[in-house]
Each structure stands twice: as C-alpha cells, then as structure tokens.
Design a protein around this nucleic acid. Structure first.
Lengths: 107, 107
DNA sequence: GACAGTACTTGCCTGCCAGGAAAGTATGCA
DNA sequence: TGCATACTTTCCTGGCAGGCAAGTACTGTC
C-alpha cells in the first residue's frame, strides 16, 4: 500500500500533468508531452530535467533513423511518488469530504 | 453535479490546506487555522485576503467579550470551487490510474 | 495617563521558481 | 555552406509566498 506523502515537486500544476500523463503512457515522446501540457520546448526540457534529478523519470535518447528522439517515462520511484501524492490528496479530500456538497451545504 | 475545474488559486499547497480545513469546520478561527497550516499571522492574513477577494471565504470579525476574533468560512462559491478542483484532480488521477501500481507496473 | 498586551493587518523585502526568447549543440540533408 | 530538426542551456522577467517589523484598535494594569 502506498503511504500518503504530499509531494511539492509533483504538486506543481505543470509537473502534475506531466507525471499523470506519464503514468498513462509508459514511454512518452517529448513533443507529445509538450503539446499536451502546452509548454515551450525550453520549459518542458527544464521540467523534465527537474523530474529526472528527482529520480522520477527516465529520459531515453534514441534515434529514429538519424533523428534524435527523446522519450520519457516514470521510474518506479516516480510512480510511487505520484501514488503517494495522490493518496495525500485523497486524505485531504476525505478530511474535507463531509461538507463538500455545494448547493445544499449551507448552514 | 460539480464540473471539474482546476483552480490554481486553491491548488497552491497552503490554500489547499486552508480550504480543506474550512470545508470540514464551518466557521474556523484565525488561530486555529494558523496553527493547523503552520503559518505566521501575516502569511495567513494575506492568504485569507486572497481567498476573500476571490469570493471563496467570508471573514467575520466578532468580539468575544471585548477582544476581537476573526472567523472564516467557505462561501458556497468557495465550496463549489473546491469541489470543482477536487473533481479536476480526480479526473487527472482517473486518466492516470491505469498504471498507478508502483511495484508491479514495470513493462 | 503611560505602558503593555491581544489580535490581527499592512508594508517592505527577500528568495524561489516558472516560463519565454534566444542562442547553443549536434546531426542530417540539399 | 546554409537550413532544418530536436532539443538544451542561458538569460531575463514576473509573480507569488512568507517572514519581520511596524501599524491599528482596543483592553487591561498599575
């Protein structure tokens, strides 16, 4: 079972979407990620470096024919961190959940 | 039903914890919040102002005897925003969920 | 009346971090 | 040689968060 652990690195909106995309795609390509999260090349490159330094992703540089291609996937460590973060969020929601009934919850 | 809507204002860690506390407490006192989220008075005051300006909280200043006391609660709008944000997070997790099996998900 | 305390609020400053633009790197192709 | 692809790195800017300290308003004490 994954213990809840709020992960600031993953929590940041752009990285959250990157990581959640990666959990669903195994190896994902640079351009695919860039288009999905709507970042420039440079911004995505930096975020991936950040994630790599945290040990959350593997970055694979391969060649398709003669052109370089960068692919990314979560490491097991990254998967755990994501799962832990999700668990932390669920805990927050659970703690709050009692009152989350928008239209009807007025006192 | 609450439509998913990622809310950057609520997403920020400190405000997320403030808002989630508020969903569970109706009126909450300043000091209670301050201690729960571990902020200084000034930092909390500013966050509450931010939330108030967004229309997410009501701030009530009452007097207990002769001493002022500030209490806060979510507005319906704030409740909706929180619920919408939670729904957005759930969507992200659902999209990702397929592969969130840390130890066993290696290809 | 002066001073201290409570309960915040506001102003000032600092530090971090994100993202864009642009230049750099490496390689291939015309 | 020059242009294109596929990123990476550098530089810069802007925003935002939080701490500290001063301000405000009122009370309580001596």
């Amino acid at each position: 079972m994954t213990q809840p652990r709020f992960d600031e690195l993953i929590h940041a909106p752009t990285r959250l979407s990157i990581v959640s995309l990666l959990t669903a795609t195994d190896w994902a390509e640079f351009k695919f990620l860039r288009d999905q999260v709507g970042l420039t090349d440079s911004a995505l490159s930096k975020q991936l470096t950040t994630l790599e330094e945290a040990g959350y992703v593997d970055i694979r540089k391969s060649f398709i024919g003669k052109r370089p291609r960068t692919s990314v996937r979560l490491t097991p460590h990254g998967q755990q961190a994501f799962a832990g973060h999700v668990a932390a969020l669920q805990q927050i929601v659970a703690r709050a959940g009692l009152a989350v009934l928008p239209e009807s919850a007025q006192t």
